[in-house]
Design a binder for these strands. Structure first.
Lengths: 250, 250
DNA sequence: CGGTCGTTTGATTACGATCAAACGAAGTGG
DNA sequence: CCACTTCGTTTGATCGTAATCAAACGACCG
């Protein structure tokens, strides 16, 4: 470990937004033993069925999780931006039940699962913060079940674009509902359970309706109110607002 | 609290299957302060938007989580059987982002979130066991995203029936792939993102193919191998096999 | 300047939704 | 005990959204 990547501090700040950390815990996170690695777009960090030996912190770039069905279809399960843990999910459960792949060129820090578990279980405040982090992931999964299960194509795509807008903004990668989509329409399609052809048509329609403007892969949500309505989007599930969790007794 | 409901012990055994607990932790779980309550089918234990003050252990019966879309559609997000916690998900995140409703008449134990959090954070082995519990929930959510996102109607229904078979068996409520479905076809439909009419047709077809036999709401999976194939079902995501989590260092 | 990958558009198909109605089982009250 | 109601299941007919098949177009790269 040579020189600490600045994203570590971003990660700590992100965790602290939910649950304050004592100085010692912050320090423990910043001195986490790890191996930094640079990965090309498309590289896998975990494959379905792998033993989960290390947990992966995304230092830069984007990644996504997915599963492949028996028919060969791909369903993308979540997207991740820098400063997020890719694998707290798998690392407590011996074997990975899904794959994680880089969406763009990216840097990651591999942290031995055992070390992170040790920290999470012996430092209550840190345990709480990390637990909340995985619960928010789970909350997003739930919303995605709803998205692919009960919304029509227009709403699905609009919903995803709204989610990106808020998550990228929180990560400092978007402002004024304007951002660069780091993925192809095919990947978008695999996230919302449609075909890329149909996603393309929906994007076109959203443009014609004046809800979004596109230029290459940059997206601008022109009318947030109508877009929220189109996507049946309610940001509560992101739990971006800080959190006391109803937990600290008076 | 008068007399301990036997399901508490079942819950402890369930948690221990994943991560062994010291006697003190087991004791702490069994002496958890709580309010027992009997609920009618259809009663809500949490509503979307409620503050999450207590965590709910299901003592008997069945329950499910769901969200309602702006269009009025309902998506069921998970089902739960006795001895499962209904609300570890919400209880660390101040506000519930989905509703939980009883599928059948049921008994529940309401446990103050703060108490459970306290235990989970100060007792490492217990924290680990509960954390794994929520991670398995999350794993099921991921599989459901795949199910509704990328499988056709026959596979979706078959998959859900396979999942029930294993989960009910683990809970002692099924054997030989035979069990009583505790829900209507409409609820089934809302879980797989189809209409009840179509679910009915799929069930009929699965029967004609000799994959299942039905009598009222009892289901028998006649040919587990073909049913698994039909549902593209791989039980790994249930993480029923015990677990060391790759975590305990040698 | 090809060559590859992703986007865009068109034509046709098909799966599951919707609308509608009959049927069956369980529960209620006269 | 039998009408009567209610809720869930089953079946049929038609409709519509998104999939599929196919091809052209555009951007970026070696």
């Amino acid at each position: 470990m040579v020189g600490l990547h600045p994203t570590f501090e971003k990660m700590v700040r992100r965790l602290e937004r939910r649950s304050p950390l004592p100085e010692a815990d912050r320090e423990a996170l910043l001195t986490l033993p790890h191996t930094a690695r640079k990965l090309a777009a498309g590289a896998h960090i975990v494959r379905d069925g792998d033993p989960a030996e290390h947990c992966c912190l995304l230092l830069s770039g984007f990644a996504y999780r997915y599963k492949i069905t028996g028919e060969g279809g791909r369903q993308i399960i979540s997207f991740h931006v820098a400063s997020e843990f890719l694998d707290l999910q798998n690392s407590f459960l011996g074997v990975a039940d899904h794959s994680v792949q880089m969406l763009t060129e990216a840097e990651v820090a591999l942290i031995p699962s055992a070390i992170l578990q040790e920290l999470a279980l012996t430092r209550p405040a840190l345990g709480r913060a990390l637990w909340i982090d995985t619960l928010i992931d789970a909350s997003i999964f739930r919303e995605w079940v709803v998205n692919v299960g009960r919304r029509d194509s227009r709403a699905r795509v609009a919903h995803l674009l709204c989610e990106f807008s808020l998550r990228l903004e929180a990560a400092g990668l978007a402002s004024n509902h304007h951002y660069e989509l780091p993925m192809t329409q095919e990947q978008l399609a695999d996230a919302v359970g449609l075909t890329s052809v149909h996603v393309n048509r929906v994007l076109k329609q959203l443009g014609e309706e004046g809800l979004i403007r596109r230029d290459r892969r940059s997206i601008t949500i022109e009318d947030w109110g109508r877009m929220r309505a189109a996507g049946d989007f309610n940001e509560r599930y992101l739990h971006h607002d800080a959190m006391d969790g109803g937990g600290d007794r008076p």
